[in-house]
Amino acid sequence: MQNTPSVATPDSDIAVEDVSLRYGRGQNAVLALSDLSLAVRPKEFCVIVGPSGCGKSSLLYLIAGLQERTGGTIRVAGRAVSEPGADRGMVFQAYTLFPWLTVAQNVEYGPKRKGIAAAERRRIVDHYLEEVGLTAFRDHYPAQLSGGMKQRVAIARALANDPDVLLMDEPFGALDSQTRHAMQQLLLRVWDHQKKTVLFVTHDIDEAILLADRVFVMSGRPGLIRKEISVDFERPRAMDLVMEPAFIAMKREILELLRGDGDAR
């Protein structure tokens, strides 16, 4: 584990430079992010870990173009971010499946917006439902699914749109620990098949180390990256990795970094 400097290079898929974000004005202003920089290389799985309220969601929303930044630049696949677009897929912590569409129609939504022909859409939907193991539920409505299933559909929906980068904002945060572990394994498997540039946000240190090529440790008020840690454990990684001494050592290091930061709220 070394501390690699986060410098945006021309080949970075996500390049965040000196980004700051202020909510509100005057007396009530909150500086959520201050001169934050990070870079994610193509096909890299990066995880931001930090206490709740440190500005993780805000950062992802900025990259997605869903929120306007106060300063700095953000480039995704070489293009400056100014508004949301299909090139940046996102999986939210809240359940955001379209309740009026079936599972298959939800996955089909993005390709349909792009104007992809019906036969090809069908192939895409079949493929990604297969990937997340929900082929049997293709005609169900979201209301009929469990929380874990909903997030699996959300992942399939984001991937079916073939974005340049995939942003994930604590997608498993609302799930029980059993389901969460299963989802982590599923995500690792899917990512192994469809190598995407991923920026994943969590407050769970185990989850961060288990998933990441690189972990950004973030602290809050104002939010900035404390340290970057390369995670070199061999893939595929199984759950019992969390009991390895090297894993525990890394976990301790991150805990030390976050200590005293507590709940940033």
Binding site: Y61, A64, G65, L66, P84, G85, A86, R88, G89, M90, F92, A94, T96, F98, Y109, G110, R113, K114, A154, R157, A158, N161, P163, L167
Partner: peptide, 12 residues
């Protein structure tokens, strides 16, 4: 829900 609209934006 605002995130429903946000999700729709990220899907094009």
């Amino acid at each position: 829900p605002r995130d429903l609209v946000n999700a729709a934006y990220t899907l094009g």
